[in-house]
Design a protein around this nucleic acid. Sequence first.
DNA 1: GCCCGTCTGTGACTTAGTCACGAAGCCGTG
DNA 2: CACGGCTTCGTGACTAAGTCACAGACGGGC
Lengths: 222, 222
Amino acid sequence: MPEQTSWIERFPDLAALPADDRRQLVARAAEVSLPLGTTIFAPGKDAESFLLVLEGVVRVQQVSVSGREIVLYRVSGGEACIMTTACLLSSEPYSAEGITETEVKAIAIPRAAFEEALAGSPGFRRIVFSGYSHRIADLMHVVEEVAFQRLDKRLAQRLLSLAGGAASIRVTQQELAAELGSAREVVGRQLKELERRGWVALSRGEVRLIEVEALRDLATSE
Amino acid sequence: MPEQTSWIERFPDLAALPADDRRQLVARAAEVSLPLGTTIFAPGKDAESFLLVLEGVVRVQQVSVSGREIVLYRVSGGEACIMTTACLLSSEPYSAEGITETEVKAIAIPRAAFEEALAGSPGFRRIVFSGYSHRIADLMHVVEEVAFQRLDKRLAQRLLSLAGGAASIRVTQQELAAELGSAREVVGRQLKELERRGWVALSRGEVRLIEVEALRDLATSE
DNA sequence: GCCCGTCTGTGACTTAGTCACGAAGCCGTG
DNA sequence: CACGGCTTCGTGACTAAGTCACAGACGGGC
């Protein structure tokens, strides 16, 4: 049954596994499909299985007591979502939540099978460790940004990355503020300033990028 | 030789290892002693071995291009310093550095032996994973603080935690600013305000805590 | 059309960070 | 002890960011 083993081919580190181990992993893992807007993990809700994302994007964000939010990072195809296991291992309960931004196809590996794969497969370990390491790098990047970077620069960066080449983004100012961990009014004023300079055009729920080069300059300034 | 295996007893997860594995780990790991102020890892300097801290404290901080700093977390006895391995695994080079704050006794495990222990020992995996998980929790805590908390509250928290029960802290305002990722002048003004209220007393290179209860209230406010 | 919920704009104010100083404390040397 | 030199600390003026309390503007459903 080549169809059953197909997902494993997406992970070069796992394709190198002995056929037996692969079969066992495939047998015990379930391919799941999550609709847009699904909460994968959240404070208080403990994770039951380890997730490997095949397709789609999961947004991981932190919510403060005061209701403000900040996006920490996004997990996309081919990556491991380690926050679920991290929550289990560090007794401290922390206030991150993971939400699917698109429809997401993923592999759910139950705790026991996860432990076994970790024990038996160097490739699996590599996937998990590199997942952890990338998230640590992401988090350090967030710290660096919120602690030391100017908001206009961060906003320009985020607009460009959210656009991903497109000319326009469908997003509210509130959502942009949550991306940056800032306040709506502040982001609104920053956007107004960019519009005044003719670099973007604003309308309800949308930002159109006009002068991409100028935004890029701002995003990489200093 | 009971002396040779002594350090392993500090890690309950490793004490459970089969005697053979323990002997091998002990044989390949080196106990090192690092004087105060040693830079364990830094940007550009790649780590050669995995570290388990036995005694002492390692401060991990991030330095921005503009020269500002922020303390991310501290690693103390019984914990794994995962940043060295994290740097290797996530290709992104990031700007954290680890510095010993006291004399530090640690176990250095070379890369190859690290991989083997990871493969062979569930206990060793547990140590490493819980190290990663705790650091992720620490980093998320830093993000939460810098993004959402008021500086006076954070300063009070830090003063109390640095004091650790003592009545006085030997630290410059510049160092306090680096703890919080803020600027010296700002921290200076905040300290002056605390002094005006009679909660602390300031002198060159020292902060004495007078009204610990008031500081604790501030630290836990909201 | 009109209503209602969401989204956006604004002013006044507080908090935090930046810049450019200068003054004070500490310590060795002559 | 007086004199530099270095580090630490204090200050004012300014800019950047966050908060609060609104008011207006848009858009879909009835």
